[in-house]
Nucleic acid binder design. Structure first.
Lengths: 218, 218
DNA sequence: TAGATTGTTAATCGATTAACAATC
DNA sequence: TAGATTGTTAATCGATTAACAATC
């Protein structure tokens, strides 16, 4: 479902409106703010319920809350970050996560120089204690920020815990027999996409030639 | 075009095959490795040219090179990272970028404590020198790794330089009048998607109810 | 030549947009 | 009640899959 990718945008936009004390909004107005068509917005929202009111539009606060509920943001998520290198530390410093109910309780690493340190008050613990810590602290999301070759080992440990979601920053393909949800962040793919788009102009000729050939074939 | 999102996957997979000295591959075999249908693979590739040969399949090396060309990976890209905080440093430590021809020449920051330091030999320079450095060193990609409120100022400076692509890690919406390509990495969106998917089961009932209502209406 | 596999057309599926009746 | 705007159906568009003739 392509809707899911848009839900965070709705959420963010409504949050902004809420902070500006906007009370109600129409799909038309939202359309202008978000760049989706009004029709699509009504269609999207209607997948999950009837949140609007004819002749009035949508109540910003209640729509915001409904979408938060859909995104699972109405409960606090306890997270750990596996790997306390630069990436792990960078993520631990993102205050944005906590703002939205994703609480980082600890980082884990194998490097004795890092163990014992704190990032924004969040302790870096010994990787050996990970499974114990997870089950003890009701952790439901683990962030994988270790080098890709270490990732499979980490995943193996995680599958034996209560973790329900893995946010994977390594390039390793992760598969857990269990029903753990895995969300991949492949940064290099994003960079390649940027590169492709920068290169697109030069490519035009080639693509056009290919299309023309097909048209001429008819 | 949805194809673009798949191109990096093709590239990665073919790179792996190349390293395993695989010479040729059919769309059928690729299909198994990638999880796309063979039909889709043939369709995708045919958008850009005729890379295969009937009865033979695709030559791994030449297909790999063709896709690299399409992605703009046949030339070296000179990058800078704006913001040398944890995120900037984490990105500077990713060796993967360099492997694919994305060379990080410098980081920039306003913090005097950071200026002068080096990350993997890459210098952290004074943000004031940024525009000069960019034009001097033929930089075509700038990575925005500064806090979101600082981003607009950075973008303003960048628009006056030779930069052709911006890889944006801040939450700021970036618009450059000029034809600079912007690729956004909104990490929080990805986390929300994970959260949604973890929450999906509980949501099922609600979504089903909504769908049932519609069916009954007929 | 026979077998394999592409390039390509046609059919299907899903997502987006347009239109409008229902209703606040 | 009249105006506004939703929820919802129908039409369009694009992307995926299936099928097969072309050809190596």
């Amino acid at each position: 479902m392509a809707v899911i990718k848009r839900l965070p945008k709705y959420h963010q936009c409504l949050g902004k409106l809420l902070r500006q004390d906007v009370e109600r909004i129409s799909s038309q107005e939202l359309s202008q703010l978000l760049g989706f068509t009004a029709s699509q917005i009504r269609q999207d929202l209607n997948n999950f319920g009837e949140f609007g009111q004819q002749g009035y539009g949508y109540n910003v606060e209640s729509l915001y809350n409904e979408i938060a509920k859909i995104l699972g943001l109405n409960t606090v998520h306890n997270m750990i970050i596996v790997g306390a290198g630069n990436l792990g530390q960078a993520l631990a410093n993102y205050e944005d996560f906590e703002t939205h109910g994703f609480k980082i309780l600890a980082l884990f690493d194998v490097n004795p120089r890092l163990i014992g340190l704190k990032i924004r008050g969040i302790p870096i613990l010994d990787a050996d204690e990970m499974d114990y810590f997870i089950n003890r602290n009701d952790i439901d999301i683990a962030v994988i920020a270790v080098p890709s070759d270490r990732a499979p080992k980490v995943v193996e440990i995680l599958t034996k815990t209560s973790v329900k979601g893995i946010w994977n920053f390594s390039t390793a393909e992760i598969s857990t027999g269990k029903n753990i949800i895995v969300e991949n962040v492949h940064l290099i793919d994003s960079l390649f996409t940027l590169s492709y788009r920068m290169n697109e102009e030069k490519l035009e000729e080639r693509i056009l030639k290919q299309k023309m050939k097909k048209v001429l074939n008819r």
